[in-house]
Design a protein around this nucleic acid. Structure first.
Lengths: 212, 212
DNA sequence: CATGAATATTGATCTAGATCAAATCGCACT
DNA sequence: AGTGCGATTTGATCTAGATCAATATTCATG
């Protein structure tokens, strides 16, 4: 069911929008983005995916991938043949339950982003984004306060519903205020409490910084 | 597995955020909204649900409902006991596949809203919203051009990431331009082609008007 | 190592939509 | 039918973030 690891160079497509669906993919190492190409040529980023996360579940409904998945750094993935997974999960209830939880978790994650896009302002969105990355790195045994962004300001902006200039300016402001230290793609969270306070300040989902 | 129909008066809760998860629900008649109550008391609407649609799938991942589900008019629902559904879907591959498609469709739907919230402007969002409702009514055998909104301007705004005044103003503008006719909750789409053109105009997901 | 193309920063200005405010309308309930 | 509250509309103003623009930095490539 799970095929051997495959490697993808930075910039390589794991799959493309429109391709037939056959498998979901587990990121083993590296970093991916998923994105939809809009008619006018711009792209909308729908997610960033790191080690241990599953991509491709949005294709189950139509058997066609609705978005592209692109490696943001050299990466390894495990292909999971979906009908074999379904077959197996018929015999192993625990696996079945696990699959359903993973599908549902994706829905919850998306609701969190809808919340962010629908009700937070720029600083809150960036703070939520950084804290979410931090927490995911921490869960994988990496530093929660110091990491490298794998994506451009434009990709962050697309994901958060902001323009790249706004992303850049907000990073600069956070740095000026001593919340973080940025130089290019390298980020250090210097005052996580204050970052959480940015999130929690006004008219938004407080305390729910695991929302993304 | 499927219990007898239950009825809910307008305003009644089908379930509340924080409650233990046991079942998903199929809307038989009527109209529901799902919403998360934010810490500051405001609510973020995450979806509107009509006849034939399934609610509650976001609770599978944690066994706790992350949002409220509230009837917007007198409604009937069918409760589907989820572990019984899982049990049954082990024996009936077609059912299993169907369940997976439904879960995945919810993910795709959410990605559509993320797209809308992240890259469309007010008029485009409203046009997408109206066309989506229209298409869902049509699919159920109701008029695609004339229907009643079950929700307030504020709820529409919360769903679309707009303030209620903006929703109202945009409806008025559409009416002035002859695209629709509104009086209170009753809507008539008078020029669907033009509405689609609003959607498809600038820097947004054109032609993908089934996106919501 | 040089060169050019992405990527990022920063400033100046503009605008869509938020906010504040005030009528008006419509519906539920006595 | 009257009453009162929530929902809606519309106007006036304000502002966060978009847009336009110029420069600086980083990185891939021959």
């Amino acid at each position: 069911m799970v095929s051997a690891k495959q490697t993808f160079k930075r910039g390589a497509y794991l799959y493309r929008a429109g391709e037939h669906f056959q498998s979901i993919y587990a990121v083993r190492t590296g970093f991916f983005k998923t994105a939809t190409l809009l008619d006018d040529g711009r792209e909308q980023v729908t997610g960033f995916h790191m080690m241990g996360e599953i991509i491709g579940m949005d294709a189950i409904s139509t058997d066609i991938h609705p978005c592209d998945a692109i490696a943001l750094e050299d990466s390894e993935i495990c292909e999971i043949h979906f009908s074999q997974l379904e077959q197996l999960s018929r015999d192993i209830p625990t696996l079945q339950r696990h699959l359903h939880r993973i599908l549902s978790r994706e829905i919850v994650r998306d609701h969190g982003i809808m919340l962010l896009l629908g009700s937070m302002k720029a600083e809150e969105r960036l703070a939520a984004f950084l804290l979410n990355l931090s927490q995911r790195f921490a869960a994988r045994g990496y530093s929660s306060s110091s990491f490298n962004l794998r994506m451009t300001r434009e990709e962050i902006g697309s994901y958060l519903g902001l323009k790249l200039e706004t992303v850049s300016r907000t990073f600069s402001k956070f740095q000026k205020d001593g919340l973080i230290s940025v130089q290019n793609r390298s980020i250090e969270l210097q005052d996580m409490v204050a970052l959480k306070r940015v999130l929690g300040q006004q008219g938004c989902a407080t305390g729910k910084n695991d929302r993304i």
